[in-house]
Design a protein around this nucleic acid. Structure first.
Lengths: 192, 192
DNA sequence: TTTAAAAATTGACCTCGGTCATTTTCATAA
DNA sequence: TTATGAAAATGACCGAGGTCAATTTTTAAA
């Protein structure tokens, strides 16, 4: 039996990821070109696509990893005890999502909506996110008349809605948190 | 002063739209190629892009028009008096959104999230949709402790959330309406 | 009717994501 | 050490969206 995956393949994959991250750091997700990645990494184009299904898969990997970091940070912070605290805790995540339209687009495309059997790295993080929100809600001073997971899904949906409307020309970025505050108050503390 | 827009330009635009619609009818949004559109319509490729900023703009036009029809239908039906009725009234719209992943993607991309100054045809329909929902809620047996427009935005957000999760491999299509029912009940009738 | 400027159209060309037959490298068995 | 088959890498090539300088058509003023 031959060893299924060779070390060099792992190294190549890592090199591609690291190169892509560096290029994104210097410019943006939007501006990333596969050709630049392979040229900088010193591999052929075909190699890229034997490691990543397509460009979006690479993006999802990187964006998913960043989401994981942000979710871990949120999980380590004390659970928010009211909506304002929640918005504060969510801020780094929201900042990342709104940092680039491209990031938002990829996230949506893969947020459970990716037509793939195996959960991708982003869908996975959405699940983790929802579980985290559910924990906050079930143990905090919020409504308890609904399933906490359902409540968590709602928080996720409202974050997306708030961000989507922020990207709209009609609604400025400055009122994202105000908008989110309205949503979350109505969702988590009805009647208050 | 020269006439700003000539008749032939309007005719060309209409021909492109009609051709695209026909091709989509025969196949799908996903499968539409700009080259097929221009070849069938008998114009040059450049002409296409002098009428539509990009392929997505054409798609947005067509999808927006369909949304407008569906929203009009919904507006003409009696206002739903409970969540189950609401889901029933929403069904044609939801069916359209879920008909193709591509449709959902374009809708999201343009649902207020399009980075364009002027509201595009889809963002416009989202506005109309929210206004319609707001009307239902403000006059129906639903919660009245929040701004009806806010409530309408929530309905819109939950429809998107439900559809997104449906496209996920983990959640089948059959439970879309059940899921939506949970969301809308929790959102519109908290504590019930 | 002539003519000049603006509008509309054209199609060769470009970019860039993605494919695939071929070649190279690696791991193991003999 | 060599042979052999699988894994990995290669790069020429393709498809399809999008651009733009050049050309044709329209409009309306002279």
């Amino acid at each position: 039996m031959n060893k299924p995956i060779q070390k060099r393949a792992i190294a190549t994959r890592e090199k591609l990821l690291a190169t892509a991250k560096a290029l994104i750091e210097n410019d943006s997700f939007e501006a990333l070109r596969v050709e630049d990645v392979v040229k900088t990494a010193g591999v052929a184009k075909g190699t890229f696509f034997s490691h990543f299904k397509d460009k979006d898969a690479l993006m999802a990997e990187i964006i998913g990893a960043r989401m994981a970091e942000l979710i871990t940070e949120m999980a380590e912070a004390p659970a928010p005890q009211d909506v304002d605290q929640m918005i504060k805790v969510l801020r780094p995540l929201v900042t990342f999502i709104t940092s680039e339209r491209y990031v938002f687009d990829v996230m949506i495309r893969y947020s459970g909506a990716a037509a793939i059997k195996e959960l991708g790295p982003i869908a996975e993080q959405f699940d983790a996110q929802i579980a985290l929100f559910a924990g906050w809600i079930s143990e905090g001073p919020y409504r308890h008349d609904i399933d906490p997971v359902l409540a968590g899904e709602g928080v996720s949906a409202f974050v997306i809605q708030a961000v989507a409307l922020t990207f709209c020309a009609r609604h400025g970025a400055q009122d994202l948190e105000l908008r989110l505050r309205s949503y979350l108050t109505a969702w988590l503390l009805p009647g208050s």
